[in-house]
Design a binder for these strands. Structure first.
Lengths: 382, 382
DNA sequence: ATGATATGTTGTGCGCAACAACAAATTTGC
DNA sequence: GCAAATTTGTTGTTGCGCACAACATATCAT
């Protein structure tokens, strides 16, 4: 359905400029007022007013200028607030991970609460609430909480904050945002974990500031991902976009990508139990012929899927995470060439393949980013 | 690469509002000033000013109000100008099609110039120039020319207006925009033909005002297409996005979609020569068992490709054009169900499949739309 | 004909960025 | 060391564009 055309108003432009300035500071790090005037093209006085407004709301803090060995009056450095935090939550099968991430991008606190079995929505709410209470009376006494972001391993309708289907958690059409927002008292953003991964990678990781990015992440439960085109995050009509794992390659009767390119298959052939990616990497480095053959098989299937994606979406960067990065790194140049050969020459020559750069913090940073999104869009709402 | 963050200025908001109003009139047809105030949310006086500015530049024309059988002062109807035209050009293997399309959306003139062999860039320029001269001294004497849009059957780098590869025309890395702009004296927009098809379908056709659209068009030369997500046209990093025909389905060693789902194959089995889609439809309606089997095979392969697209992009609408629409229409409900079965339940329940609604004018309207794009974005530039 | 309703028109006010002039802080040149 | 040059922050003014209110105009209902 088409949205009603939004007409810009004169009072919206201040909001937009505050958003631009705050985003610059948040995404590209602390910078001087002089740099901000250059980057935004706005007038010096305008930038001063905007920063004053952001500062009054505690969103940014000014520091003394760093000596720059340059002629002229030094410009004070303005940085995103480290006292304004978002809660990042990642419910998994066996644990709930909670973190407090500041607007400055620092993970200030983190806690992993083990669960004997897959947690319910109510348990997630309870754990988040209790962790938050503890932090509020301790390390985060002086901090303000802006919002909560949740990275869910499953299909999420981001607009409503409901989890459509999370097989590993046993959730089905579960409303997560409402009870969590009611308990904590701040807005709650919910999204798919891989989708949030690409957000983080694009901001601070392997696809920093690329505008056309495809991201595929391989985990124990399958292959998920995300898409950024023209610099905006593609959710699709309902927020389900990015399910690369369900792509079918072998014609009408065969399985889907995540059945064939699968971490479990590798572990089985390597005769390994449930190990982490580090141990898996070690096993792949010293592989038996059978395992090597399986790796090659999975590599060529993955290359076909990526080649298709390159043809259809013409991205400037393809980012692989989880065990997909491990597959690629068993001969990265060779793999990249394989992908390029599966694609048409024109889009192939443009695309760059890389492995994900962010480690364990990726999901937490992505979730915090989703939580901060509303504030960054409209800093006055805070 | 990431663009420098654009900061909105106060004088940019007038431009943006002019753009919003002109787009509304252009895309959704003539409407009263009263309707425009409602739809934009702007003030009555503001709308009056904006329309005065557009009218002064000859972009819109006001007509007497149509009787509405309603209380209150009647509101004059404002329509897009029919005197401002764009030239739409579509070079094919055996002909060059040229049309003059007004901002009001009417095809005012059209001409098909036959070519003994595939035209060169220079020939296209010459034909367009001579056709335009003829029209200018005749039917288009009073019209103003805004821009030229060219729909090319091949890979186009839209940003620069160069044709990367158009195998049927024999073009390779051909700069089309520069010589054409130099000859005609107005800006030239160049894009892939299927990409422009989705533009037209989204404006006036089967996907009218859908915000997440996938479009696949099947022609004699293969399968092309286009993508619209979040209401914006996805070109990819270089403008090559939408090459659905090059998607591989059968694993690492098999061919691509347009090798398998192919008009030529159908014609061969039906023992037909190079006929148009109408004749092909007739042949499919009265098919031999062998042809029927081939149709079913192609249908199921196409369904797999579409199912993948639905999973990855979560569109609200899938539009099929050319012989792909014919394939679907041999049992549309059954085909749609097939696609839905190949996709995950969540995105599948949202998506609607349809056949393209626009006929032969599709490419011309799309090309004109590309030509008008600059004007619609910034009406003051005219 | 008269009142109710809806819309165009005109003049005023307000918000916000641009601009200009001045003040402040640092480096460079002598 | 001190002055000039350079860059940036600060302050007050200007101009632009939309909102709003008051009034004028055109149609319908009774």
């Amino acid at each position: 359905m088409s949205r009603p055309t939004p007409a810009p108003r004169s009072d919206g432009i201040r909001r937009a400029n505050l958003s631009v300035v705050l985003r610059l500071i948040h995404e590209r790090g602390p910078r001087s007022r002089a740099e901000l005037t250059r980057e935004t093209g706005l007038n010096r006085s305008t930038v001063a007013h905007l920063i004053a407004a952001l500062s009054a709301r505690g969103l940014v803090a000014e520091r003394d200028p760093t000596p720059q060995r340059r002629v002229g009056r030094p410009s004070p450095v303005v940085a995103a607030s480290d006292d304004l935090v978002a809660l990042a939550v990642n419910p998994e099968v066996d644990a709930i991970e909670v973190a407090a991430v500041s607007l400055a991008g620092r993970v200030r606190e983190r806690s992993r609460v083990l669960c004997p079995e897959a947690p319910t929505v109510a348990e997630v709410v309870r754990v988040v609430d209790s962790v938050l209470r503890e932090w509020r009376s301790g390390p985060l006494r002086a901090a303000r909480l802006a919002a909560v972001g949740v990275a869910v391993p499953g299909l999420v309708q981001a607009r409503t904050g409901t989890v459509r289907l999370a097989p590993h958690l046993g959730w089905h059409d579960a409303d997560l945002a409402s009870p969590l927002a009611a308990a904590i008292g701040v807005p709650v953003a919910v999204d798919n974990d891989a989708t949030l991964g690409v957000l983080a990678e694009r901001l601070f990781g392997a696809a920093a500031h690329d505008d056309d990015v495809i991201y595929l992440n391989g985990g124990a439960s399958g292959i998920g991902g995300g898409i950024v085109l023209r610099g905006i995050h593609i959710r699709g009509a309902d927020g389900y976009a990015g399910e690369w794992g369900q792509v079918s390659l072998g014609g009408p009767d065969s399985g889907v990508l995540e059945d064939e390119v699968s971490r479990a298959r590798l572990l089985r052939i390597a005769r390994l139990g449930p190990v982490d990616d580090h141990a898996l990497a070690a096993a792949l480095a010293d592989a038996s012929p059978a395992l090597r053959a399986e790796v090659d098989r999975q590599r060529s299937l993955l290359a076909v899927a990526l080649g298709n994606a390159v043809n259809v979406l013409n991205p400037s960067k393809v980012v692989l995470g989880g065990f997909l990065a491990l597959l690629r790194e068993r001969g990265a140049d060779e793999f990249d060439a394989l992908v390029r050969r599966r694609a048409m020459p024109a889009p192939a020559e443009r695309v760059t393949l890389t492995s994900a750069a962010l480690g364990a913090d990726r999901l937490l940073i992505g979730a915090a980013e989703a939580a901060f999104a509303e504030l960054l869009d409209d800093p006055l709402a805070m």
